[in-house]
């Protein structure tokens, strides 16, 4: 499958090394992407990287992707200017099962660059706010300067029907919020664990601690979802790189129910 050309319509700096690109198709568009899914973004002559959709699903054909400069490809993508072209393949992978949370409390837990893959699902839930119980967002970053989507988070925080808690690992004196890892916010977050669904994204170690804390609160394992990451070269289940035990993450994931993924995460270096 070959990449389709998209033009960078807008570009926004999130942090020192994280950028959001808004892309519009030059001609043919990929299928409508859903929150949780990803595309393979191609920078001319450099290569491709899997990047989750961070867009509001109501934006239609406009793609929104938020990425950290992690290596050659992501640096190249982050250096693209409005008007530049990038290649897009996708959408790949599965989506957040937002519908399973209907009528229940929804808990989003994001660590660092884990917020972008959740952002579309937050938009989706808020667009159908009446269909859900309490909505909680717990977001942690390493430092205040590393928090992304600050204006969204501020806007959500100012709503009376959303509980937002933000924390950072370390901060200077001008930070008046929480300090500590995001998982520490779970024990006192306002949701009913017996009737809630949680969506968690962050580094693997953070997801494991978050899952433990959520289950400790009484959340059933079947109500807990995470998004997994592995090296990917094709995005369509043919290159082998993203396999983890019985599953190919690009094909069967990246979103997994916790109890399905847990046994494989417990084996080191699988």
């Amino acid at each position: 499958m070959a990449p389709l050309p998209y033009v960078v319509a807008r570009k926004r700096r999130e942090t020192r090394d994280v950028w959001t690109l808004e892309l519009e198709p030059v001609d043919e568009a990929i299928e409508q992407i859903r929150p949780g899914q990803f595309t393979m973004l191609y920078r001319f002559g450099v290569g491709e990287a899997p990047i989750s959709s961070s867009g509001d699903p109501e934006l239609g054909f406009r793609l929104v992707h938020t990425m950290r400069e992690a290596g050659q490809v992501t640096r190249g993508l982050c250096a693209a200017k409005p008007g530049d072209l990038v290649g897009v393949r996708g959408p790949f992978g599965n989506a957040w099962p937002v519908d399973t949370a209907r009528g229940k409390d929804v808990v989003f837990v994001a660590g660092g660059i884990g917020l972008p893959p959740l952002r579309g699902a937050v938009y989706d839930v808020l667009a159908h706010r009446n269909g859900f119980g309490r909505v909680v967002l717990l977001y942690g970053g390493r430092s205040p300067g590393e928090l992304v989507f600050r204006s969204d988070v501020e806007r959500w925080r100012s709503r009376l029907d959303v509980d937002v808690e933000v924390t950072v690992d370390t901060a200077g004196h001008d930070w008046r919020g929480n300090v500590g890892v995001v998982t520490k916010l779970i024990p006192r977050a306002p949701f009913d664990p017996a009737n809630a669904v949680a969506f968690v994204v962050g580094p693997e170690i953070m997801m494991r601690f978050a899952a433990a804390a959520l289950i400790e609160r009484g959340l059933p394992q079947e109500s807990l979802w995470i998004s997994m990451e592995r090296t990917m070269r094709c995005g369509v289940g043919l290159c082998g790189h993203c396999q983890l035990g019985p599953t190919l993450i690009c094909r069967d994931g990246p979103v997994y129910r916790w109890d399905e993924m847990r046994p494989w995460l417990e084996v080191a270096a699988l």
């Binding site: 191609y42 001319f44 002559g45 450099v46 290569g47 491709e48 070269r233 094709c234 043919l238 290159c239 082998g240 790189h241």
Partner: peptide, 10 residues
């Protein structure tokens, strides 16, 4: 065995 990687060149 079918694993592959890709090489992008210009």
């Amino acid at each position: 065995c079918f694993c592959t990687h890709v090489e992008d060149t210009s």
